[in-house]
Simulated scan of single mutants.
Amino acid sequence: MRARGAIRAGAIYGLILAIFAVASPALAQAGGQPGALDRAVQTISGDGRPLSLSLQILVLMSLLTVLPSLILMMTSFTRIIIVLSILRQALGLQQTPPNQVLVGLALFLSIFVMRPVISEINETAYTPYGQGSISVEEAVSRSGNALHGFMLTQTRETDLKLFMDLADAQPFARPQDIPFSILLPSFVTSELKTAFQIGFLIFLPFLIIDLVVASTLMALGMMMLSPTIISMPFKLLLFVLVDGWALTMGSLAASFAGG
């Protein structure tokens, strides 16, 4: 029962994070005008009244087709899945672990990394909104601030400057004033660069094993024997001896701590 409750809570928080992740950029593009979200809802309803709960659920279910891609690009998932894919390639394993396992590992590790952000959204936005103390627009704004702060700490200044120059944007007085239209591509670019840097460091020791095995086979005149077949057991042995999975997952989680 506890496990089932934890899964249900995780799913709820994931949906909340998804809703706020999509709504926050839209709110930022609207210029943060009071009542902008309410006017949008009233326009959709057509009669000046807010949408009913059933219609709101229908709209949210329709957004589920685009929410996954937005969530993956606005969280730690991108860096984690790229590093795990490079690790599998470095080990010389084509389909082990399978893609479903890698995606599951990346997803649950992302939930672990994003736990402070999810907790902040729950405390500052979801719970007050559920109690009726704040409006949906205020809840979206507070959730957007939480995601904005996370992405900002993981984004390099050089990437921010690049997209600010491309957008012809003037320097902002505070980092919090950077719009999502500039922060999002900067964050994704930084995540890709960081993921490939970590992947290179992971790939290097396995590459050394491949070179040693290939050189040994050449010296023995066994050129018809594939070096991959011989080096794979040694790479797996090395990975197991150093407790590679715990080391990799722990290092990935720790890479988000410093910002």
Rank of each mutant, 00 (worst) to 15 (best):
S110A: 02
R8D: 09
G31H: 08
P50I: 00
R49D: 09
L162D: 02
Q100Y: 14
A28M: 06
E157C: 04
I229W: 08
S255W: 03
A167D: 14
V22L: 15
S62T: 06
P185C: 01
R8E: 11
S231C: 06
S255C: 05
A257M: 12
A36F: 09
E137I: 01
S135N: 05
T43F: 14
F234E: 03
V101R: 06
L247G: 03
V188M: 04
T124W: 09
S119T: 10
S76K: 04
D159A: 08
S181A: 15
I134V: 13
S133P: 03
S186P: 05
S133Q: 11
L91I: 08
S133V: 15
F206R: 00
Q100V: 14
G10N: 13
L37P: 01
A253Q: 13
L192M: 04
Y129H: 09
G35Y: 10
Q197W: 14
P98Y: 07
Q154P: 11
S110R: 01
F203Y: 14
G10Y: 15
D243K: 12
S45K: 05
V242K: 03
T194S: 08
E138S: 06
A254S: 10
L105Y: 05
S45N: 13
T155S: 05
Y13R: 09
S190L: 05
L70F: 15
S226D: 15
D177H: 09
I19M: 13
I82M: 05
L67I: 15
G10H: 10
V212Q: 11
A246K: 14
I44T: 07
L67N: 03
S133I: 11
L109D: 02
R115E: 11
G48F: 07
L201G: 04
L84K: 01
Q100M: 08
P50G: 04
P50F: 01
A219W: 13
G46P: 05
R49H: 11
F200N: 00
I182T: 07
T216G: 03
T153H: 13
L84H: 02
I229F: 06
F112I: 11
M73W: 09
L15T: 15
Q176N: 11
M151C: 04
Q33C: 03
N99H: 05
P128R: 02
R174M: 13
G48C: 04
L105N: 02
L107I: 00
I208T: 12
